[in-house]
């Protein structure tokens, strides 16, 4: 049913730290690797070795420059499904293929019901959904439901592939509906934000903005190093000997 559940038992989602993300793309490739054999498999590639390589990916890392009066910084920005609380991608679906689970809030596509009308991708302002032209159905992030509940995996591996792959710990997975969960506390401590809150989709995933620079950080515009002034003592003697 594409009508939304009134409440969900859990609100599983990701917290992404834009301060520590280094843009290594490990989450991107790990997501692709897991999911091309996972719940929504395959993640078709078109012309993968040709000049117009294209394909289905659930997670894409953009790079931005943010310029403020305190200087500029490069920000790597992973973009994936936010598993919204008010997902228009679900309610516009004419077939019931798109749905939001009442148990954990994850937004999924039932590929057997999808007619490939693409309307859900038009309804998503975040670009979370990508159409698989080879299969003729819409695909999207599953929050790795085939990992997080997978009893064949070690307990510590029961997290989304992107979270498991991140070498800097920039991705966190948990229940954002529970105010005492580690992810909720992290969001509180770091001032985590919703993306495009004014659009009214109420995304579950939160983004932690980059921390403020410390006072000792290098300023934006560093002047050339000053020439070394003559010193006394041993180093001064070495300097004089080498200058000869």
């Amino acid at each position: 049913m594409t009508s939304l559940p009134a409440t969900t038992d859990k609100t599983l989602g990701l917290v992404i730290d834009l301060d520590t993300c280094v843009g290594c793309q490990a989450c991107v490739t790990s997501c692709k690797e897991w999911n091309t054999g996972g719940h929504m498999a395959p993640l078709t590639d078109l012309d993968p070795y040709g000049s117009e390589a294209d394909g289905v990916w659930f997670n894409r890392v953009h790079t931005y420059e943010q310029s403020t009066e305190n200087g500029s910084r490069t920000v790597h920005f992973p973009r994936s499904c936010l598993h919204c609380d008010a997902p228009a991608c679900v309610t516009v679906c004419p077939t019931g293929a798109s749905y939001k689970r009442a148990s954990d809030g994850i937004v999924l596509v039932n590929e057997d019901l999808c007619i490939g009308c693409k309307l859900c991708s038009w309804a998503c302002p975040y670009g979370a959904r990508e159409f698989d032209v080879a299969v003729g159905v819409m695909k999207k992030c599953t929050l790795c439901i085939d990992r997080i509940y997978n009893e064949n995996l070690a307990v510590e591996d029961r997290v989304p592939a992107c979270v498991a792959a991140c070498p800097t710990g920039a991705r966190h997975f948990g229940d954002l509906g529970d105010p005492d969960s580690p992810v909720s506390r992290l969001v509180d401590e770091r001032g985590g934000v919703d993306l495009m809150p004014e659009m009214g989709y109420r995304p579950t995933n939160k983004y932690l903005p980059p921390r403020h620079r410390s006072a000792g950080a290098a300023p934006d515009h560093v002047s050339a190093l000053d020439p070394v002034t003559a010193e006394g003592g041993f180093l001064g003697w070495v300097d004089r000997m080498l200058t000869r």
Binding site: A53, D54, E130, V133, V193
Partner: peptide
């Protein structure tokens, strides 16, 4: 700014996640 959660200042795209056109 709102789309990336980066409040304040000017945010400018300097690199796309993919070299060729994707579905989006």
């Amino acid at each position: 700014n709102s789309a990336t959660g980066l409040g304040g200042g000017e945010v400018r795209s300097i690199e796309w996640p993919h070299s060729e056109k994707n579905y989006l």
